[in-house]
Design a protein around this nucleic acid. Sequence first.
RNA 1: GCCGAUGUAGCUCAGUUGGCCAGAGCAGCUGAUUUGUAAUCAGCGGGUCGGCGGUUCGAAUCCGUCCAUCGGCUCCA
Length: 641
Amino acid sequence: MINITFPDGAVRQYESGTTSMDIATSISEGLARNVLSASVNGEVWDANRPIDSDATITFHTFKDTDGKATYWHSSAHVLAEALEALYPGTKFGIGPAIDAGFYYDVDTGDKVLTPEDLGAIEKKMLELAREKNVFERKAVSKADAIAYFTDKEDEYKLELLEGLEDGQITFYSQGNFTDLCRGPHIPHTGSIKAVKLTSLAGAYWRGDDSRKQLTRIYGITFPKQKELKEYLELVEEAKKRDHRKLGQEMELFMFSEKVGQGLPMWLPKGTQIRERLQNYLRNEQEKMGYQMVMTPHIGSKKLYETSGHYAKYGEDSFQPITTPKEGEEFLLKPMNCPHHCEIFAHRPRSYKELPVKLGEFGTVYRYEQSGELHGLSRVRGFTQDDAHIFCTPEQVKAEFLDVLDLTTKVIGKMGFEEFTAQISLRDPNKPEKYIGSDENWNSAETAIIEAVEEAGMEAIKVEGEAAFYGPKLDFMIKDALGRSWQLGTIQVDYSLPERFELEYVGADNQKHRPVMIHRAPFGSMERFMSILIEHTGGKFPLWLTPEQFVIIAVSDKVLDYAETLKTDLAKHDIRGFIDDRNETIGKKIRDNEMKKIPYLLIVGDNEVASGKVSVRRQGDGDKGEMSVEEFVAVFKAEAEA
RNA sequence: GCCGAUGUAGCUCAGUUGGCCAGAGCAGCUGAUUUGUAAUCAGCGGGUCGGCGGUUCGAAUCCGUCCAUCGGCUCCA
């Protein structure tokens, strides 16, 4: 007998060789029906793989990420099986699960797959799924595995096998299809009830552009037809909210071929929103002791040689511009920190003034590959909500906490509710990759971890993801559609203070090297704007939106009253405009609803007589007549909520 | 940067196998109408058919090339 420990700590005894599925069945039929895989001692296993010794076990269903990953990876195998049935001789690369669904990279030889073929493949997949084929795991020797794929003439699998050790190789088979795979898989294909192949794309074998391009087929599957429908609706909704589309419709920003790709220009309405965001953030930061600075858009090449960035990125950046007579070289600034280091160094610093926090909405320029540019989220010129904190090693933790506070506050103010953090630490096995003393690294890493704990933020730690000059923390937020986005970062840096020979005089009258913290809560104004647009679908929080109300005059006899109303509201810092076009009221309501103006104030003879206003909330219809004071109260209540 | 697709009016799109002055809806302008909670009516203007080069009697349509956009890949101080 073996002891099985459950997530709640309960321990039960089972026969050796029992499977997670057996265990699930012993608990309840419902669980057994839904279980897709299980973590056995922390490793995700097939539900029908025998367990031979004491273990802790966690079941996975389609409700959790591991369960979904198992399910989608298994779906990729069904896709492969369908392809092999429809296009014999197809060779297979890799077919992993991804955040939403799965893909398989395939080489169909002379047959070029087109989107029109996908329907037939989906049909075949469903047919195969209905056969309820069991996924069978089999350990094979390397020699046998090579023989199998040599016979199949699948050079991709053979190449994958080269990297695997004999004794660790497993095959999985379902129906007539066998694949090299580590697993795990779902019990059988029958739980795949809804299939959608979403797109086709080229992808290089092993991501190497000198190698053959395979066809990547993306797809997603669900245990219920209804879930697929919901997913497709979500995709549709995401399309509607695409910030590139809304940005154009709402006249927030634009691009011009003549100006150049990846160089956004903010239109008046977009600029209003951005300035409000910046003012808000500037205010919050000044309350926390930040001092704003401004630095030029270019800097001497020497500056970046000092910082080390030129050596690392020079070739892959915009190339230097030179003065016509002297031939001096300048770079468009790719980041603000070297300038800020020079500001810190412009006079001797005492420990008494630390931490020094220099903030700047600094516009930077980076060469991004043309294929990578995307609306406002990936551009070549953008403005960081940047600041650099120069402090003592002992202050790192407190400063981190401060930044966490600031970030959760400002992001929360935008209506985002779910944050997580990723803490990037050193790779403990490669100390040579990093600069700075062990002592500093240890204390900085501990400081970050403790600060995150104290802030009560959910965080994952990833070893080996730190920059060579210090550990960092990235903020992730979830938007209204449940999508995750990476926002700003906080990054500890030991390198730049060293390179710029930054110093402060300590209480001991000795010179010390400060630690530098880079941080940007939004990351960049452009990227944040793109996320905010998609999160809100263009319906910005009231305090941010450029036009908070529109007064719709029933006829031009009441325009004077409309003017008075507008002036009254302006006294309460409520901004808007009068739609005095010679159009019907229905037309004006329609147009302003579509422009997403939050409040539509209708005035006609009735309102002039009563001295009131008829209020309509965008997207929520007629709210009835109210006095101006009542409207102001309603408005303020929403704005401050 | 690489692979594939796309590029027609401010926006969304139609333009048969190359063939008269390139079309529609919305937006815009002018006029009429003075309107009560999601489109009033009439008229008008607007396009080097992404740029350049070529094939042809003739090119939005065929070919080449460049640019931009989209979907991926790769990359991100």
